[in-house]
Design a protein around this nucleic acid. Structure first.
Length: 430
DNA sequence: TCTGGGGTCCTAGGACCC
DNA sequence: TCTGGGGTCCTAGGACCC
């Protein structure tokens, strides 16, 4: 096993022991922060925090300079400010990160079509088939890092190992801006001293359960009797964790995973009691979800809402329709019915709308053929989609989302519901 | 310090069918 | 007249990941 930061050639030359290490895990370093630094070069070397800057924001990404002060992802922005007041705080720009992500993934796919994208900033590659053309995996990783740095000016770390889980551990250990090869012969030596929380699928709760029965390291889990493991985390997880802890992980790198649900949610700056306000939010969220479904040519049968109360208690309610839909109006009507069924509520912090059980658009097509009443809505919404793609989403919106003043002037883009997508309950163009 | 928004997967109970 | 067990679908909750 060798660690590299600018010393790749010596540690990972073609003679390196990367026999049957054909899985690469590529993970961008402090991705959002790095993209911001790239477009604002004056920020280089400074603590940069990307995250919600409103009262209830959390940190999405922190540069390593900010991490030195203890700033971490998912931490409330207010805490990050307390830890590092001199940091530069930047609101997220998902469009920019998506664009950077596509550029990264394109480079990865240039190496091999066997790329499994895990999230916006990480992916697995199986380079077994690329060996003959591009050299041993370690060399491929070295070239890949160099190319991403040169063409995109973005740092990343790469793990190389016999399995996905180990490759992921490798990239984590190599950060920032490094590379780590874990040869098969040294897998257990690497794995067993690590804390149980390193295992994929072990979060705070499972770690607690494992600690409770005396298991603290990955080695402990590998050697634990299955009965004990099952009592701590349940049947399925026990089997899975025991495999991972033993260095086994048969999951292949797979391409083209299908999406299973599409949702949108929003947290209020101040908890809301007014159900009319909730209704407007649901209308807007349903509009976003419907628009994304239609853009993706998908539809789903199950409509789910999520409600988080002031005390952070969170509930979900769902209803499955006889026929899949991609119609915002139908999503909204179902969501609103589910909400009203709750009766009077405590103050609400978050509202979410999600469509699950996705299938291609055949469901929707069938509905169209049957001439069901949603047909009118679908056509109206398609017209809005077309207008929005020409003039922007802000140009078209449901009349009920316009504030009184907006009826006479341009929509106020800063007003919360106006950022949300149109619904067709009588739309207007501006 | 007070907890975002995008998701996936698992469990468990009840309904319903055979 | 009382009752088994398997399979599938639906709903709710929760853990987890990035």
């Amino acid at each position: 096993m060798g660690r590299e930061r600018g010393r790749e050639e010596r540690d990972f030359g073609p003679g390196g022991d990367d026999t049957d290490c054909s899985i690469l895990h590529v993970d961008m370093d402090a991705f959002f922060a790095s993209v911001e630094v790239r477009r604002h070069p004056e920020l280089r070397g400074k603590p940069v925090v990307v995250g919600g800057t409103g009262g209830r924001g959390v940190v999405s990404s922190a540069s390593y300079e900010a991490r030195a002060f203890g700033v971490r992802s998912a931490m409330p922005t207010s805490r990050a400010r307390a830890l590092c007041p001199q940091a530069i705080f930047i609101p997220p720009d998902s469009g920019a990160y998506g664009e950077a992500s596509r550029a990264v993934m394109a480079i990865l796919r240039d190496v091999t079509p066997l790329v499994e994208q895990l999230s916006v900033d990480e992916a697995f590659l199986d380079v077994a088939g690329a060996r003959r053309l591009l050299g041993p995996p370690a060399q491929i990783a070295i070239d890949l890092r160099a190319r991403i740095a040169r063409e995109l000016q973005l740092p990343c770390s790469v793990g190389i190992a016999p399995t996905k889980f180990l490759a992921k551990l490798g990239s984590a250990r190599a950060k920032p801006d490094g590379l780590l090869l874990i040869p098969r012969a040294r897998v257990l030596e690497f794995l067993h001293p690590l804390p149980v929380s390193t295992l994929w699928g072990v979060g705070e709760r499972s770690a607690e359960q494992l600690h409770r029965v005396g298991l603290r390291t990955v080695g402990d889990v590998a050697q634990a009797p299955m009965g004990l493991l099952r009592s701590a985390v349940g049947d399925a997880a026990a089997t899975h964790l025991h495999e991972l802890a033993s260095g086994r992980d048969p999951r292949p790198v797979t391409t083209g995973r299908e999406e299973k649900s599409v949702g949108s949610e929003t947290t209020y700056d101040i908890d809301v009691s007014d159900h009319e306000r909730i209704k407007q939010t649901m209308l807007a969220l349903s509009g976003q979800v419907g628009a994304r479904l239609r853009a993706a040519g998908q539809s789903g049968r199950t409509i789910a809402i999520k409600v988080r109360f002031a005390d952070f208690k969170t509930i979900n309610r769902s209803r499955t329709l006889p026929v899949a839909t991609d119609v915002s109006q139908e999503i909204f009507q179902t969501a609103w019915t589910l909400f009203r069924a709750l009766g009077p509520t405590d103050r609400i912090r978050l509202i979410g709308v999600r469509v699950e059980g996705l299938a291609g658009a055949e469901g929707a097509a069938r509905q169209l053929a049957l001439g069901e009443p949603e047909r009118g809505w679908r056509e109206a919404e398609r017209a809005i989609d077309a207008a929005a793609s020409r003039f922007g989403r802000a140009a078209v919106k449901p009349a009920s989302l316009l504030k009184a003043g907006d009826r006479r002037r341009q929509p106020d883009k800063r007003a919360e519901p106006d950022r949300l997508d149109p619904l067709s309950d009588g739309f207007t163009a501006s």
